[in-house]
Amino acid sequence: MMIGSINIAVLLAALMVAATPILLAAIGELVVEKAGVLNLGVEGMMIMGACVGFIVAVNTGSPLMGFIGAALGGIALSLLFALLTQALMTNQVASGLALTLFGLGLSALLGQKYVGITPPRTPKLDLGPLSEIPFFGRALFSHDIMVYLTLALVAAVWWFLKYARAGMILRAVGENHDAAHALGYHVKRVRVLAIMFGGACAGLGGAYLSLIRVPQWTEGMTVGIGWIALALVVFASWRPWRAMAGAYLFGGIVVLQLNLQAAGVKIPVEYLSMSPYLITIAVLVFISSGKARGALNAPGSLNRPFHASN
């Protein structure tokens, strides 16, 4: 199927790849916010993941090790945030910003010797006859394993938040930390674990950029994807499946504007590449305005510090 010079199957395939890093970061942040913590450091953790993942993959020659390293890098940075906001009771907004500024600087420092190197290739997952199916085979079943693992992660988070006992405790902590504390749940422990999960996811999302999507390391290569992921959590009104839908929508926009650039449409490249940010803002406006009522679903204790007074 073709529209003009654009092949729809290829477009869909590219969309899934473009959406995966945003979705990974968003699903992590969704769990963090469900626990009542607003971590604005997603961009910083993502770029650290992109950098650490790249360095590990290049040195070990294994993309898998790269992804593990990226997750650990994201966790390391998120623990810094946890230390500040949970143990030292700092302002979450300021701490998240600090995390982003620090992560951008540190990744540039660590990665400066890795600019211009090609990372080891991540193989496509062999799905046998599935990838032979006309159209769908190319669009859906011709990807690397991370694309499918990310989708599995969305399903797992959905199940966890809805049915698992631990997930219900996490939601309780996020909705009303005083009540959760009174019931004997460890508010801080739950939150630190959630923050670590968010860090790991953001790190993986970053590594997906540097190891598969681009694949290269350049300074500041996340170009605001972490912030778009934050917006996506609001857009999804804190529901995992909606986060996935949102990520695929944004992936579609990114891919479409890249295709329009390549097709030589008579709009300067700079204006086309603005579109993902502008559309993110437009969607945020739509969701937060009264009509959509999405913002009403925000966890009750979001961005409120918890200190047990006795």
């Binding site: 605001g224 778009i228 204006y271 940010y277 502008l278 803002i281 945020l284 406006v285 305005s289």
Partner: peptide, 29 residues
């Protein structure tokens, strides 16, 4: 957007940085 639609000013003001950078490039070129 904040006062009219209750949109989070943190995210909007930050996303607009990237838009401004693109405008800057478009102007310089």
């Amino acid at each position: 957007l904040k006062t009219r639609f209750n949109t989070n000013e943190i995210l909007v003001s930050l996303l607009l940085v990237y838009v401004a950078e693109k405008i800057l490039a478009a102007m310089a070129l």
